[in-house]
């Protein structure tokens, strides 16, 4: 029972953090960059682990942010220097990084507690067994258990994301909605682009344990898109993205429980179903107002 609570708490934090970041990704038309970064973060995690032999949060965050920013920068350079289309250069960079990541994982399977399965699904069902202890002077048995490692990672990252958005809300708003105005006001849009990419990298790496490298794209893009369809303001969009993500977690968890399927996949599927439902309702509304106009 207590395990279920930890799993649910982790999942809803992951979904909320992804939804918040996803809103800005969608508004800045960087959905594909989110896809790319979530793939390449795998390489960052593997490299950070192989080099430092540690799974501490700062190490993982450092590796992921570095690789995430590298992905963004390389795609941009390839676009400019190689004169390739924007999405083509993104595709070339992230597939290479992800491929190297998968190769490293299968080469060092014995040494990393990562395998191909976990890249895909994450292992949210097992997170309660990997706990953090504090105190005890290095002796784990004496320490005080404070809960799953994955929970605390995502909790910290969620706080970072939340605080960043609260502090820089107006800047982010200007950059997201009026990139040209931002430029003419002297706002460094390049900085804010990479700032957003840093947030994306941190969120994906903290979500990695829970949902894997690919399903995180679903959590980044889908609830934020649903919110994009219904919201009228940025604040409203952020709130409704969170609402959508939490509903998906609730439905997805039930679904997974009933069907005995992977929790992370079920959450993503329910997010998608909610989006389709939203589109359906909007379409019906559109038809109805159309008909009313015709009648009058």
């Amino acid at each position: 029972m207590i395990n279920d609570i930890w799993i649910l708490a982790t999942a809803s934090l992951v979904a909320a953090a992804c939804a918040l970041v996803g809103v800005f990704l969608i508004l800045r038309r960087q959905a594909l960059m989110g896809d790319a970064i979530s793939h390449s973060v795998l390489l960052g995690i593997v490299l950070a682990y192989l080099i430092t032999d540690s799974r501490a949060l700062p190490v993982m965050l450092g590796g992921a942010v570095l690789i995430g920013l590298l992905t963004a920068w390389l795609s941009d350079s390839l676009h400019r220097i190689g004169k390739l289309q924007n999405d083509a250069s993104i595709g070339i960079v992230f597939t290479l990084f992800f491929a190297i990541g998968v190769i490293l994982v299968s080469l060092y399977t014995g040494q990393i507690d990562l395998d191909q399965e976990c890249i895909l699904y994450g292992e949210i069902a097992f997170i309660p067994f990997d706990t953090l202890t504090i105190g005890g002077g290095g002796n784990i048995a004496d320490g005080f258990e404070i809960g799953p490692r994955a929970f605390w990672s995502i909790a910290i990252v969620f706080m970072i994301v939340l605080i960043s958005i609260l502090i820089t809300f107006h800047r982010l708003q200007t950059v997201a909605f009026h990139p040209n105005l931002a430029l003419s006001l002297g706002i460094n849009t390049v900085f804010w682009h990479y700032f957003l990419m840093t947030l994306v990298s941190m969120t994906t790496v903290a979500s990695f344990d829970a949902v894997g490298a690919i399903l995180v794209v679903a959590l980044l893009v889908i609830p934020a898109s649903s919110a994009y369809l219904v919201a009228k303001s940025l604040k409203g969009m952020l709130w409704s993205a969170i609402a959508y993500s939490q509903t998906s977690v609730a439905i997805g968890y039930t679904l997974a429980y009933q069907l005995d399927s992977a929790i992370s996949a079920s959450i993503s599927v329910s997010a998608g179903l909610l989006l389709l439902l939203t589109i359906l309702i909007l379409e019906i509304q559109k038809k109805r107002t159309h008909n009313l106009q015709k009648a009058s």
Partner: peptide
């Protein structure tokens, strides 16, 4: 919804369905 977002949505939604079925 913009074209690039549509691509990302389709990709991740279908993949999630596939993984859900696979785990099932």
């Amino acid at each position: 919804i913009k074209a690039d977002t549509a691509l990302a949505i389709t990709l991740s939604f279908f993949f999630a369905i596939g993984l859900m079925l696979l785990s099932y």
